[in-house]
Amino acid sequence: MIGLGLPRGFIVTLKNFIRPAVTEQYPDRHIGLLGVAKEAGMNPFQFLVKKPADSLKAIAGLATVPVAVEQAARFRGNEFTFFEDRCTACASCAKYCPLGIIEIVSVPGKIDAQEGESYKLDVFDIDIGRCMFCGLCVEACPYDALHMGTSFERSKYARDELIITKEELFDADKRPSSWYRPQFEEKSFDPFKETIDDHYDAGRHERPSDEDLKKKWVDER
């Protein structure tokens, strides 16, 4: 028997039909003529006269701009951020990893007058082809040297290329995620806009002043 149920359902679908779409365009978003002109900093008529070919393309719906996906600051991305100056090669991350995919080889390094005997990091490979990005290595790091990264576009054509080496980590952009790093949240650090260049800023403590450093390493020795 047909009653009120179906019309009531159609009212709901009609409401949803006119509400704005929630679909997110990725990796490119189509922009029309207005969008293209705005990108170029002109008004649409100017743009139409000056660049007719581009305008036609835009009107046909072929002009696109890349878009970024909205992510939370704690996003556990498909990479790692590593501060070599903070690392003591203690291998806590390797011990804590559920899959055992972090390889660390350390050799006794130089004996520094200031910092004493140190260990040099020889090999630091993360096989992210097998990584599940649980973040336990980051949680284990006692000196805040290893952080989760925020990027996720790392697809490669071969599995071997998915091993992140030490050099790659050194050179990468330092955009750490604030996952298990409350100090970034206190500073309201936004990994999608800024980078952290100084390794002092990645730690849980305040950066010591120059006087404190001089007192500790020069005057008291």
Partner: peptide
């Protein structure tokens, strides 16, 4: 609420 409006009283579902 929406789900109930269009599903819980729907004759086809019944």
């Amino acid at each position: 609420d929406e789900l109930e409006a269009y599903l819980s009283g729907n004759e086809i579902i019944f």
